[in-house]
Design a protein around this nucleic acid. Structure first.
Length: 658
DNA sequence: CCCGCTGTGATTTTT
DNA sequence: TCACAGCGGG
């Protein structure tokens, strides 16, 4: 297979849906090693920790474990952390910088808005953080024009970047931005890292943004660097968060005269499913031509169902999969219900519960909770970087220790005036002088606590997990955590998740002293603490958004709401991203292995109102040869009048325009 | 500290 | 419609 053996020079592997993308990359790595490449010079970059983990596992299966361990398989962000932990000083940051995740960033933005905004000005922290993030992913690290400082958002942006620097902190976007910056501006640094990696591989290349492309370009050495990217332009669905399909469409511009290999054999779906997918995606302009085929046989036609409203749609889908399950005995895990927006899952959930069918909702945003875990991280971060005000503010009153809001506000003011951080302000004699004896005592105790544990944590031969446990205990955090719970069970659960974390810290076989703890915290900061929720692990039918479904596959798939305004989403018309919506449907269709059902409604309830709906314009693009029109009324096994059946059939024909 | 009132806004989501 | 944030009162 050429995709595996062409190891020299730039290679572009166009890997269509279900063509064995990950398998190809891992086989390449194994092939490289078998042919004498030094494993330590191989770098494979992915987007998610999950993908990196899977790849690492598969490499370990193919080559001996000592060699596998030398290969660098990493996400873009953790690769950047690695670069920055070594070389960020060139940019004027200290090496012990703290990494802020999105919620840390939002809380900093919130603070700044209250500090900067006039009485009548309003700005949502969430929206502002989003704006800043978008800008940074375009490579912009400050508001562009002079006016920008005058708008609230611009002022917050400028202030935010300055604050991060003062706090010796970087956010997720900075990781990319600063890593690229240091490689761009310091040739010695660039040469060092480029020399390390002789073979570069990038997964899901269609999802890269400008910064990520630049990172790869700067790491790639020589006229014909060994850069192999794998991706599928037809599955580019993250444009809205900065991904540039252009990167894959114009690969030759960045890496001239590449070997281009198209993987077109699909190992997943039936011919009808692939045929349908092909007929749809053909309507996209500007794509790398490819035609997927499979040897899996024709299979069933794709069923297109028109439901009267979203409630009936849900009842139908759930009823249909229930029936199928009873008839064939396949397991619940083989089913997935896909939808454009999270809100759509509700009706499905209700219908599932009514029938007692087990299900799991993937995604959503349940990862902002786990308050106690974030608190523990804040405690530990503070030991590594006392200048980290966001962490300090998070824990200064957990537990309440007599340092009230007023005192904190004063300390903040003092720290701003002195151009320093909160920790320094709290330790400052002049600041203390202005306080009551009681407050002074409370602050003194708090600062002493931090200093004492900083010394203990980084003492030679310190047992990090044990020191951390004592820290959380003696600070009163654990007791406060338990106290704040409503039930003893909840208290146990939360305390246990803290101890799990500490146990993990104990097991973490890192270096002694600061580095070991920092590696551990870096890992925690970069991995969202959402539980492992792979479709295999849970029980039940998978309910999932179209976006989150990318990369997964299921024997039986239902795609809901193929209606104008929902898929394509109404926003996409104004944004000019209809192509991306089409790719989204393409991704959805290609998730199915055996049986696929598409549905749409004539009426949908939104914000309490019944809205008339039109079928998605995408339906007209589908090749009818692969479709079967399901008579909704009949399928529901309700006594339907012939008239109703006829009219619904006529409507469907009308919709499809043939 | 907690409860209930009011106002608001409502794609997609990983690191 | 409904969920959630922010606020004021008990």
């Amino acid at each position: 297979m050429r995709a595996v053996r062409q190891t020299e020079g730039p290679v572009l592997i166009l890997a269509g849906a279900g063509t064995g993308k990950t398998r190809t990359i891992t086989a390449r790595i194994a092939y490289l090693i078998a042919n004498g490449a030094d494993p330590a010079t191989i770098l494979a970059v992915t987007f998610t920790n999950k993908a990196a983990g899977e790849m690492r596992e598969r490499v370990a299966d193919m080559v001996n474990s000592a060699e596998a361990a030398l290969v660098t398989v990493s996400t873009f962000h953790s690769l950047c952390v690695r670069i920055l932990r070594q070389d960020i000083e060139k940019l004027g940051y200290k090496r012990n910088f703290t990494i802020y995740d999105q919620s840390d960033a939002i809380s900093l933005v919130r603070q700044l808005i209250t500090r900067v905004a006039a009485k009548d000005e309003k700005l949502e922290p969430n929206a502002a953080q989003n704006l800043i993030s978008r800008a940074k992913n375009l490579g912009v690290d400050a508001p562009t024009d002079e006016n920008a400082e005058q708008t609230l958002a611009g002022a917050v942006f400028a202030r935010y970047q300055r604050e991060l620097r003062r706090l010796n902190a970087v956010d997720f976007d900075d990781l990319l931005l600063l890593a690229v910056k240091v490689l761009r501006e310091h040739e010695d640094v660039r040469t060092k890292w480029a020399a390390r990696f002789r073979y570069l591989m990038v997964d899901e290349f269609q999802d890269t943004n400008g910064l990520q492309l630049e990172l790869i370009r700067r790491l790639a050495t020589g006229d014909r660097p060994n850069v192999c990217v794998v991706g599928d332009d037809d599955q580019s669905i993250y444009g809205w968060r900065g991904a540039e399909v252009r990167n894959i469409l114009e690969f030759e511009r960045h890496f001239p005269e590449p070997t281009v290999i198209a993987l077109e054999q699909n190992y997943r779906s039936t011919d009808h499913i692939l045929g349908l997918a092909n007929s749809l995606i053909r309507h996209n302009p500007r794509r790398r031509a490819k035609q997927l085929w499979s040897g899996r046989g024709a299979g069933e036609k794709i069923r297109l169902v028109a439901a009267p409203d979203d409630r009936e749609e849900a009842i139908y889908v759930v009823g249909d999969l229930h029936r199928l399950k009873l008839e064939t005995g396949i397991s619940w895990e083989d089913f997935a219900v896909l939808f454009r927006t999270n809100a759509q899952s509700r009706l499905i959930e209700e219908a599932m519960r009514e029938r007692g069918i087990p299900y799991r909702v993937v995604g959503g945003q349940s990862f902002f909770d786990r308050r106690e875990v974030k608190d523990v991280i804040a405690y530990l971060r503070l030991l590594l970087n006392p200048a980290d005000d966001v962490s300090l503010l998070r824990i200064i009153n957990a537990p309440p220790r007599g340092i009230g809001e007023t005192t904190v506000a004063r300390a903040l003011e003092f720290s701003i005036k002195r151009q320093t951080n909160l920790h320094a302000a709290l330790s400052d004699a002049e600041f203390a002088a202005a306080l009551s004896a009681k407050t002074r005592g409370a602050i003194g105790e708090f600062v002493a606590l931090l200093d004492r544990f900083e010394a203990r944590m980084f003492a030679p031969l310190a047992d990090r997990a044990e020191v951390a446990r004592a820290f959380l205990d003696e600070s009163g955090f654990i007791a406060d955590l338990r106290r704040s719970c409503r039930t003893p069970e909840e208290a146990d659960r939360r305390e246990e998740s803290v101890f799990d974390l500490l146990q993990d810290l104990g097991r973490h076989s890192g270096a002694a002293g600061e580095k070991g703890l920092r590696d551990f915290i870096d890992r925690l900061s970069l991995e969202s603490d959402r539980e492992e929720e792979t479709p295999e692990s849970g029980h039940g039918v998978t309910l999932i958004t179209l976006h989150a479904a990318k990369g997964l596959e299921f024997p039986h798939v239902y795609v809901l709401g193929l209606e104008e305004g929902l898929l394509p989403h109404e926003r996409s018309r104004a944004d000019g991203t209809i192509d991306e919506e089409r790719r989204l449907l393409y991704v959805a269709i290609t998730r199915a292995k055996q049986r696929l059902t598409l549905t749409h409604c004539s009426t949908r309830f939104r914000y309490g109102q019944a809205l008339p709906r039109q079928a998605s314009s995408f339906l007209r693009e589908l090749d009818v040869a692969h479709l079967e029109f399901v008579d909704f009324a009949k399928e529901l096994a309700k006594p339907a009048t012939e008239q109703a059946a006829k009219s619904s059939f006529a409507r469907m024909r009308e919709i499809l325009g043939n």
